[in-house]
Design a protein around this nucleic acid. Structure first.
Lengths: 115, 115
DNA sequence: TTAATAAGTTACCGTTAGGTAACCTTTAGT
DNA sequence: ACTAAAGGTTACCTAACGGTAACTTATTAA
């Protein structure tokens, strides 16, 4: 006879889980920070580095590439001199903002708590 | 002369960042799933394993310990036979639910998208 | 006394993530 | 000719993460 499992009152999480799906986007180091930074509008590579001081160029590069592939941000080269590159949230990317807002809010409560 | 950085329109993220604070709680593998599962009420170790089939006992142990230390969940031993252990969200833990809800919602949109 | 159940624990291992630091390319200005 | 600015790229290294599988303890029932 198997394990007795009480019926779970929480909505069942489907096997191919939206929670994991979303976390695979938000999961990498500094990813939510990048999206948060872009929520204020278009931003260049080095501006993002200033917004998020601890991020390294390498990781920022990787994040931006990945997010572009995932359709979360766009990358546009401007013919300035030297050429600059502008990153912006797509419509899909903007859908992430409520989640990030919620995360920030909890972050504040956690910080209050730890004082 | 330094880098020209346009003023960012997004609310500045303070140095000791609530975003990172919260992600350090949600970041580990399966953590949001565990919290989500507990949102339906008290749950035992092996019930959680059933709720989240791919999680290993080892990782679940680590998650539960960490979340308990962080004040997100409680752990209570019941004098059944064999003794069983019940995990539940604390008030602080419940504060995470809106964030997780938001993440799940985006997860659905991402899944639609990829079809 | 053997087995089942609950809740872990431990050793071992491979992969990957992310940090550092050096390097590269293009364009324009001095 | 040299330098600065923008936006990367690359090699290298280490720590940490997470998976597997075997083992443990306590209690009770058959």
């Amino acid at each position: 006879m198997g394990l007795k499992v009480r019926k779970n009152q929480s909505p069942p999480v489907p096997h191919n889980c939206p929670l994991s799906e979303c976390m695979s986007v938000l999961g990498g180091a500094w990813t939510p920070n990048v999206i948060w930074s872009l929520s204020g509008g278009v931003r260049r590579f080095n501006e993002l580095r200033v917004d998020i001081p601890p991020i390294s160029a390498k990781v920022l590069t990787v994040r931006l590439k990945t997010l572009e592939q995932q359709g979360i941000i766009t990358r546009q080269v401007k013919a300035t001199s030297p050429p600059s590159v502008e990153y912006a949230l797509t419509e899909l990317g903007k859908e992430l903002l409520p989640a990030i807002d919620a995360i920030v809010k909890v972050g504040h409560k956690l910080k209050q708590r730890s004082k």
